[in-house]
Nucleic acid binder design. Structure first.
Lengths: 196, 196
DNA sequence: GTCTATACGACGATAGAC
DNA sequence: GTCTATCGTCGTATAGAC
């Protein structure tokens, strides 16, 4: 089952709504999902949904922000556990692969949606804390001499680009094997592209 | 001005509709664009739009397929002009960068939309002829000994992943300089990641 | 082929009882 | 806090004149 936050609280109405909505959004997209659909899928009445959230966009916004927060705390943990850019970025890719396999809905919604179309007031994913943190790790690797000096966005594209494409390929059903079977190879080549 | 096909015919009603629609779709997305919007933007009445296309999805479908065809013919040209995987793939990346700079609407619509959400019956982009061709170029490079032998999707992710991320970064407004200023560096690192 | 006017349905959102 | 019933809006699509 997909959890929106990673606390082990018993499922309250909020969570029921968010979980059902994430499933529908990742399956059909925001615009193909009606509030009636959410009511049916979650078993919560329309009235209750509007009692818990301002409107449909409010539900999407709650999902987006809680997932951003969850991913960010995971990346922060990675940053504090590992000390080199090599180990940090490797752990990031590994985590993203794991998340894709365990909770494809989450990745589908986070990596593979055009949030700007239905959440115009939220911060874009590419400027969000997790993405900033991923670039920060690359930057520190350039300063420590592990990674060739170049534009940070460019280096990040080189280092994460292949892995992110493998994730979308997985979500598109192009890959038969689970993602982690590609992890070592992807990482080897990605690192090779930027290391000194 | 954005052209859907690259023929130099005078603008007929079909083209007026397609051009205006592509602009709106890339700006606001399929679902935030009403047929009224298309009518206003194109200067063609709603009745005429429905005379030329079966429905709104039919307009999107026409855009999608004509752009696929156009890109595919460009990639085929590249394949016949260049003989090594190195030169072919480099030309592909160069072409995609150029297209992003010249006609961002096209790339926004092709690379940055969830077509499955509004074109459920069309072939997914990842299985389309252009993408197949891009992978084919990589495959032939493995057979000729230019590129390390590995899963084709994996190699393609390594070789094109960074460039594709730079394109989305450009569309997201993250890059100040035009894409072609990054071309040499991106290509150098991408190629380094897979070459023997 | 192009237009205007309109029918029809679906959806988001609210009211108000329990 | 949860529910059912309903309202108003908007968007797609069609009818029919020119």
């Amino acid at each position: 089952m997909v959890k929106i936050n990673n606390k082990q609280t018993p499922l309250n109405t909020d969570q029921q709504i968010l979980t059902a909505t994430l499933k529908l959004f990742s399956e059909k997209g925001y615009f193909n999902t009606s509030v009636r659909d959410i009511s049916r899928e979650s078993g919560v009445s329309i009235g209750s949904i509007y009692h818990h959230f301002k409107d449909k966009e409010g539900v999407a916004s709650a999902i987006y922000n809680s997932l951003l927060e969850r991913i960010n705390s995971e990346l922060s943990e990675i940053q504090s556990v590992h000390k080199t850019a090599h180990d940090r970025c490797h752990a990031v890719v590994s985590f993203l692969f794991e998340l894709t396999e365990q909770e494809p809905d989450v990745m589908e919604f986070m990596l593979y949606s055009k949030h700007r179309e239905f959440l115009p007031d939220e911060i874009p994913l590419c400027s969000s804390q997790p993405f900033e943190l991923m670039r920060e790790m690359v930057k520190s690797g350039m300063q420590s001499g592990e990674i060739e000096t170049m534009d940070v966005i460019l280096a990040s594209s080189c280092l994460y680009g292949a892995a992110l494409r493998m994730i979308t390929s997985k979500l598109d059903g192009l890959l038969e094997k689970p993602l982690y079977e590609y992890l070592d190879t992807i990482w080897k080549h990605s690192w090779k592209s930027v290391c000194i």
